[in-house]
Design a binder for these strands. Structure first.
Length: 446
RNA sequence: GUGGCUAUAGCUCAGUUGGUUAGAGCAUCGGAUUGUGAUUCCGAGGGUCGGGGGUUCAAGUCCCCUUAGCCACCCCA
């Protein structure tokens, strides 16, 4: 009989314990931050009716949706992001949710695109959104959440780039280019990548604008400097357009509010050239990059949208939200060596090498667990040396060793694996107090 | 979907202008060492050379196709 080759699909990955442990910890950290701002968890099905998913982004995104017919002949698709399912969810449940509604959603999504560095066909998104309010407070809060997320994950040097699409919209309005907004934005988004000349060329060819018009758009993108300097330049660059002026005011409010709510000003940068490809953003938009690893791209992006669920309900549901690139951040932490190499989920290892005392080992483990300690008992009575080697490689902190001598003397030998130091500690069945105290102390001292 | 680079043991890689039986380190397992782990020594297992086809007396090596990985475009987390 020939064996089946074990393999995963292109763009799909397995996660080993050494990756999964920090990954779970990251999700836990994100959950705690979201909850601390009052966001509530939700979940939605992986599969949606195909009509829910298609036609929301570009043709490009439609092409990337995994789709098939289910056993009942229905056209279904796997969710491509968490925003479209949120729109459907909100349209369906807003009556019972109350307004405004703040939710977070951490779940995998699927995209049938070609894999690349840090890009996969299955990956976890970590979204938070506030819907059914247009208040600038929600915008400010989004910036504060991003700051808290990265800070809690252990990052210090990162930059949150802010922009307000309304400023661009106003400028284009003034230039009579309202109909070409989307292609102009797309080209503009490439500015830092392909340079000024090529951007102008692309705007002319792809968006059908004149060179002068393209120049005017780029003058806006050229605004650099401190936030104060940029705010001073913007009214003139946008030609006094009213829509743009309102956008500038709004952006200023967000900036000041974010600083007031504790986001260090050094982490905020105004970048009027970032546009974000997604068409549905209409107001403030943000991208977050790591100062020490800018090449991996944005690790948390999002923005404000006017009308999230217009395709599913007549209710007007504006909102703001962002998505944390969990796996991208994990890759960054790996590169920056912020990850400890530990694959032992419990800190304490019990060597099992005296088969006559099997039940004693089990009782010892149970006693420690009921004191809230994580304990693993080795399943085979192998040579002690082999067991200690296993314990060391797995990254346990302490090993408990007990054989005939110890059981007779009512003690347990506690070994700190890293230092190889041992101590004999008293232990009597059903009275593990002394041992628990010693072990707890040793773990804390680690 | 388009283009470039790559594929040899579980992992990292050697393998000469095509030439006998494809190697090393690490890892695994056994022993030296019937209760003390990053050392040492001895031994063992493990390969359709990614898959398929072709050229040749002869292919890991050359050619074509295919699959997967990496990189770039597009788009994006």
């Amino acid at each position: 009989m020939s064996l089946i080759q074990p393999r995963t699909l292109k763009g799909f990955r397995d996660y080993l314990p050494e990756v999964m442990i920090p990954r779970e910890r990251m999700m836990q950290t994100a959950r705690e931050v979201f909850r601390s701002f009052g966001f509530a968890p939700i979940d939605t099905p992986v599969l949606e009716h195909l009509e829910i998913l298609t036609g929301k982004g570009s043709d490009e995104t439609d092409r990337q949706i995994y789709r098939f017919q289910d056993n009942g002949g229905r056209d279904v698709g796997m969710r491509f992001d968490l925003t479209v399912p949120l729109a459907r969810f909100a349209a369906q449940h807003i009556g019972t949710l109350g307004k405004p509604f703040k939710r977070y959603h951490i779940a995998p999504v699927w995209r049938g695109e070609n894999p690349q560095a840090g890009r996969y066909r299955e990956f976890v998104q970590c979204d938070f959104d506030t819907i059914a309010t247009e208040s600038v407070l929600a915008d400010i809060e989004a910036v504060a959440v991003i700051n808290s997320l990265l800070e809690s994950l252990g990052f210090d040097r990162f930059t949150i780039s802010l922009n307000n699409r309304t400023i661009l919209t106003g400028l284009l309005e003034g230039l009579g280019l309202s109909d070409s907004t989307v292609p102009v934005l797309r080209s503009l988004d490439k500015l830092t990548k392909i340079g000024r000349e090529k951007t102008i060329a692309e705007m002319v060819s792809a968006a059908g604008v004149t060179e002068d018009q393209a120049e005017s758009v780029l003058r806006l993108a050229d605004c650099n400097g401190t936030p104060e300097e940029i705010f001073a330049m913007l009214p003139e660059v946008t030609g006094g357009n009213e829509t743009a002026a309102a956008g500038i005011d709004r952006l200023q409010e967000i900036y000041q509010g974010a600083v007031a709510s504790g986001v260090p000003a050094r982490r905020i940068k105004l970048d009027v050239s970032i546009a974000r490809g997604l068409d549905y953003y209409t107001g403030v938009i943000f991208e977050t990059t790591l100062d020490d690893l800018p090449e991996i791209g944005s690790v948390c992006s999002g923005g404000r949208y006017d009308n999230l669920a217009g395709l599913y309900t007549k209710q007007h549901l504006p909102g703001i939200g962002a998505s944390l690139g969990l796996d991208r951040l994990l890759a960054a932490m790996e590169k920056l060596e912020l990850l400890p190499k530990i694959s032992a989920p419990a800190p304490i290892f019990i060597a099992y090498f005296d088969a006559d005392h099997r039940d004693d080992y089990l009782r010892l483990a149970a006693n420690l667990r009921s004191a809230g300690l994580g304990v693993e008992v080795y399943p085979e009575p192998k040579k002690l040396g082999a067991q200690l080697k296993y314990a060391d490689q797995k990254g346990f902190t302490l090993a408990l060793i007990a054989g005939g001598n110890e059981w007779d003397a009512s003690t347990v030998q506690v070994k700190t694996l890293a230092s190889k130091e041992t101590s004999d500690v008293a232990y009597i069945h059903d009275d593990a107090k002394e041992l628990v105290a010693f072990v707890t102390n040793a773990l804390a001292a680690k």
